[in-house]
């Protein structure tokens, strides 16, 4: 496979031609924040958190294949501001009560909030009315926390390729729903995978919770992305941010 040279924030990088930018960056020790993206799953670019500038134009790093000589801006004030705003938009769009959420500490959305130093969402909280669904014998689906990242839609299928989860409606009425019939027969293994793949606490296994004690959870002590970055970002410059 052909290797290409490119730059991220003036740092010389090298990757396989056609590799998605997010992966190419990771291989070069550069963390580009993602939320809807999953390694080795077809990207869908829905959260826009991995937005970078490619040769001066906005693009999502999870859907842009790397090409020779690309100049990427990622760690800039402009991009930082956009990503932070996107995270804040999610917090305002749904009902994200971290203190009551089983995934708190292991939640990727929350971890990005920490990384970007979000103290409050600049957008008014919308407090939408959403359903909690328990049709599936193994799962509780709390749509209050759903961020419409499409991870479950993309990854959870039955053997014939039929979807358990799908989008319904569009625009401001867009929701994720579960097939009523298929929910009833979902095997435990599939349910476990569904929970594992959900970046937030929207898909939860029944009859088990809070298995990791506070202090030992994924993002209690380590910042998301720190496993990729050469220097471990343990400390960040927080700010008392005005609304």
């Amino acid at each position: 496979m052909e290797r290409v040279k490119f730059q991220i924030d003036n740092k010389d990088c090298e990757a396989l031609y056609g590799q998605m930018l997010v992966d190419a960056a990771r291989d070069n020790g550069v963390y580009i924040p993602t939320l809807c993206n999953m390694q080795d799953v077809k990207p869908c670019g829905s959260c826009r958190v991995c937005t970078v500038k490619v040769n001066g134009r906005y693009a999502t790093a999870c859907t842009t294949p790397v090409a020779c000589g690309m100049e990427i801006e990622s760690d800039t004030e402009e991009i930082h501001e956009i990503r932070k705003a996107l995270i804040e938009l999610i917090f305002a769009e749904g009902n994200h009560y971290c203190p009551t959420c089983e995934m708190s500490g292991n939640c990727e959305l929350q971890a990005l909030g920490y990384r970007f130093g979000m103290m409050v969402s600049r957008f008014p909280y919308q407090f939408p009315q959403r359903e909690i669904n328990t049709d599936c014998q193994h799962l509780i689906i709390d749509y209050n926390r759903c961020i419409r990242c499409k991870r479950c839609i993309r990854t959870i299928k039955d053997k014939k390729g039929k979807s358990y989860f799908a989008f319904i409606n569009r625009g401001d009425k867009l929701e994720v729903t579960m097939d009523k019939e298929m929910a009833k027969t979902m095997p435990l293994k599939v349910a476990e995978l569904a929970m594992e793949n959900c970046p937030v606490g929207a898909i939860l296994l029944k009859e088990t919770a809070y298995r990791v004690p506070i202090g030992e959870r994924r993002f209690d002590k380590k910042c998301i992305g720190s496993e990729i970055e050469e220097t471990d970002v343990k400390v960040f410059m927080g700010e008392l941010n005005n609304e």
Binding site: C98, G105, Y114, G117, D220, K221, K234, V235, M237, G238
Partner: peptide, 22 residues
């Protein structure tokens, strides 16, 4: 840390573990 920074006008530098939503 926040109160001291506010009252003394010093810059606020927070360790990662300190800002949490839970």
């Amino acid at each position: 840390d926040a109160l001291v920074a506010l009252l003394t006008g010093k810059e606020l530098e927070l360790p990662y573990e300190v800002v949490k939503y839970d």
